[in-house]
């Protein structure tokens, strides 16, 4: 009996370490494979270089860093207000039955494969932009819209949880002194839920930075620093996915080095998110 107990405990401890082990393996392999390129090109020239032309031995990923930044920022501009509005409606204004139907519906959005989002962007949004705003259509704007929609589920469900966690007495207290619902929400509920909403924003940002396939299909993927929101753009993730299939040697290592940069950015965002969640 007690030997079985001991075995279970040891086995579970080992199992519990899987995720730590996987994390360690990922870090080890990506850094091992990418660091020679960083050393060869030089960290400054790699991160700060404006030309990416593997054929000529030029490996500067600044356009992709800027591209990722623009696209992510744009996605937050579209996705965050929309998602927060939706969460507010579901938690504060919607009749209970409506909310009970809509909430799972929004979560279904999270299950739609990213390639499908990209495809809809490709067939619907890109032509719209090309025909009405000009440019090639494949653009920062198209990526921002597609990603903005893709971060909605994260944004909605985490802010919704934060709003729901605000004690009901706060609302009743406000309503009791004669405030209407909107005043209650803006002056009490939203401030109380702020840390959770911020965390939702940061996690959405993480999703947007990391998304790959959908962006490839609508971004145009040119390795130039975009100057207008109608310009084509290439993100860090797209850079890896687009060229991984055929890259060899230093080129391949440079793609893994791109992975390192992505990894560091995501890591920083995660630490930021955790600090926000914990700070209040």
């Amino acid at each position: 009996m007690s030997r079985k107990e001991k075995f279970a405990e040891i086995a579970l401890t080992v199992v519990g370490l899987t995720s730590v082990a996987v994390l360690a393996l990922i870090i080890f392999f990506i850094f091992k494979e990418g660091s020679p390129a960083l050393a060869h090109v030089g960290l400054g020239r790699f991160v700060g270089g404006t030309r990416w032309s593997p054929g000529k031995g030029q490996f500067g990923i600044l356009p992709m860093i800027v591209g990722s930044f623009f696209v992510t920022f744009g996605a937050l501009l579209t996705g965050v207000p929309l998602g927060l509005g939706c969460a507010l409606y579901l938690s504060e204004f919607a009749p209970r039955k409506t909310a009970a139907v809509l909430k799972p519906l929004v979560e279904i959005l999270a299950g739609i494969p990213s390639v499908v989002f990209g495809f809809i962007g490709l067939t619907v949004i890109v032509p719209l932009i090309r025909d009405h705003l000009g440019g090639p259509g494949f653009s920062v704007l198209a990526s921002a819209i597609v990603l903005g929609v893709m971060i909605l589920p994260t944004m909605v469900s985490i802010s919704y949880d934060a709003l729901r966690a605000v004690p009901q007495v706060y609302r009743e207290g406000m309503l009791a002194v004669g405030a209407n619902q909107w005043q209650t929400v803006t002056s009490v509920v939203l401030p109380a839920a702020r840390p959770g909403i911020l965390a939702a924003g940061i996690l959405s940002m993480g999703r947007a930075v990391g998304e790959t396939m959908a962006v490839i299909m609508v971004a145009g993927n040119a390795t130039i620093i975009p100057v207008s929101f109608l310009d084509p753009v290439r993100t860090l993730t797209s850079n890896i996915a687009l060229e991984m299939g055929y890259a060899t040697g230093l080129h391949r290592q440079a793609l893994f080095a791109t992975g390192i940069v992505l990894f560091v950015i995501i890591g920083a965002l995660n630490i930021l998110a955790r600090a926000f969640i914990r700070s209040r």
């Binding site: 995720s19 730590v20 393996l25 392999f29 996915a241 992505l262 995501i266 995660n270």
Partner: peptide
């Protein structure tokens, strides 16, 4: 430590998993 590992894993983009899976 275990929780940190799990949470960090959750934040890693799928393309990085792809790279890792390919290498490993």
């Amino acid at each position: 430590i275990v929780r940190f590992g799990t949470e960090s894993l959750a934040g890693i983009p799928s393309i990085i998993f792809g790279l890792f899976g390919f290498l490993f």
